[in-house]
Nucleic acid binder design. Sequence first.
DNA 1: TGGCCGATATGCT
DNA 2: GCATATCGGCCAA
Length: 184
Amino acid sequence: MPRRVLLERHFAAPTLDVARALLGCTLVHGNCAGVIVEVEAYGVDAASHFVTRPRTGAIMGEGHGRIYVYSIYGVHHCLNFTTDASGPGAVLIRALEPTRGIESMKERRGSERLADLCSGPARLVQALAVDPALTGRRVTDAFEIVRPRHAPDIAAGPRIGISEAKNLPWRLVVKGSPFLSRRT
DNA sequence: TGGCCGATATGCT
DNA sequence: GCATATCGGCCAA
């Protein structure tokens, strides 16, 4: 049975295509894993770190298939994978359905409730113990991303928590998942 | 060097 | 639904 693992070249596609492909995939990091149920695409739009954080966000334009972990509101960190061989881009991982290492996740998160472990970009970074120092490394060095047998049903809407470019429907979710960061 | 703002999470009303 | 902690990144001065 073939392993359906994403390779560096899969991140070379346009950002929205990569975002769609990531939904439903199992993201493995250390002893923990979860199914990706919510992502957001960022390019050169007004809400993108490539524009608003020209120094740290420059990594979005320096190749694809790289890890970009940024800090926000002081104590939080969020995980992105860079995309698009022909321009700046990244996909923000916003929520997972926890599948493996759940006891570790509960300890790190200080919560027993399954839906609180990875339902938010900073929550999943804490649950999986993603190290911000991984920024710049290859995605495949620190993560294994396994495709689902069947593509999930996807819904799109505006991205969360931004003040610019609110109209772009670049937040993609697995339709009906109870593990989203917000109800749709 | 100071000040502003943010791709958030949490707790309270 | 709303307030706010908390500090890195950025830029103006």
